[in-house]
């Protein structure tokens, strides 16, 4: 069984402790999100899990066969056109060039890009289109684990929903797992099986929320109800410092 196991993970930047004693397990087919305020060490945690940073204390065991990463800001190669950008993940895996391009074109169409966009460079794409390319690039490799670094934060609500649907499809078809960081609670409730609440200074997990309803069966009403409920939670209020707002 493929899984990602994080045990007693602690991380420092210089003398500042960023993460303190983090423990969790992500199983196959599961969507796990880490929520918390900005600057709470979420990105560091994600980068450690994705192997972009070296683990100092504790351990991370990743037995997933393949991983992919969708970034907050597209991070497309400015000198490559849309299709070549999508194909880089496949090419890095050693896929043949024409095969990779064919797959990239197919997924680009699925992600709502037009054929006339294929030869455009990132400078000519809108923010939404860049993010479509970003997702297509990650999902075309059919990863068994996908890392998401708040990739929805600058998108309009329609595009968000479209990309949610693509993600849930991939989860179902390929039994893909997702490790997802966000500061948007509603988004976390919509997609995740499990939510970890990360409190800052240093980043540590204070509470875990679990949702049993399958994520493709969650109605809008369910999401709003759960969001309202979670906002009453004492730990949530504490972590996001919601009570200071009331004082004002």
């Amino acid at each position: 069984m493929e899984s990602l196991e994080v045990k007693n993970l602690t991380h420092h930047f210089g003398f500042t402790e960023i993460l303190h004693n983090i423990n969790f397990t992500l199983k196959k087919g599961e969507v796990l999100s880490v929520v918390g305020p900005s600057g709470g060490g979420k990105t560091t945690l994600l980068h450690l899990c994705a192997g972009l940073l070296d683990v100092e204390e504790g351990s991370i065991q990743n037995s997933f066969k393949s991983t992919a990463f969708a970034f907050q800001e597209g991070r497309l190669l400015p000198w490559k056109n849309v299709i070549d950008n999508i194909a880089v993940g496949l090419l890095a895996k050693g896929e043949k060039k024409d095969e990779a391009l064919k797959k990239s074109q197919k997924i680009a169409l699925e992600f709502g890009l037009e054929e006339e966009d294929f030869t455009k460079y990132p400078k000519d794409l809108s923010g939404g289109m860049k993010q479509r390319v970003n997702f297509a690039r990650a999902l075309v490799t059919k990863p068994s684990l996908l890392f998401l670094d708040e990739p929805f934060s600058a998108l309009d609500i329609g595009l968000k929903k479209e990309l949610y649907a693509h993600l849930l499809d991939s989860c179902k078809e390929n039994e893909m797992s997702i490790l997802f960081i966000t500061h948007d609670l509603m988004e976390a409730i919509r997609l995740s099986d499990k939510i970890l609440l990360l409190k800052a200074d240093p980043g540590h997990i204070v509470k875990t929320f679990e949702y049993d309803t399958p994520n493709d069966k969650r109605e809008e009403i369910f999401i709003y109800e759960q969001s309202a409920k979670i906002l009453q939670d004492k730990e949530i209020i504490d972590t996001f410092e919601l009570n200071t707002l009331e004082l004002i």
């Binding site: 991070r75 190669l77 880089v88 890095a92």
Partner: peptide
């Protein structure tokens, strides 16, 4: 640096890192 990280996360070979990034 962001593009380097992207290349890292997709496991680019040194050849791709050099010629594409």
């Amino acid at each position: 640096g962001d593009l380097k990280e992207m290349a890292e996360s997709f496991g680019f070979t040194w050849y791709m890192k050099f010629f594409d990034v």
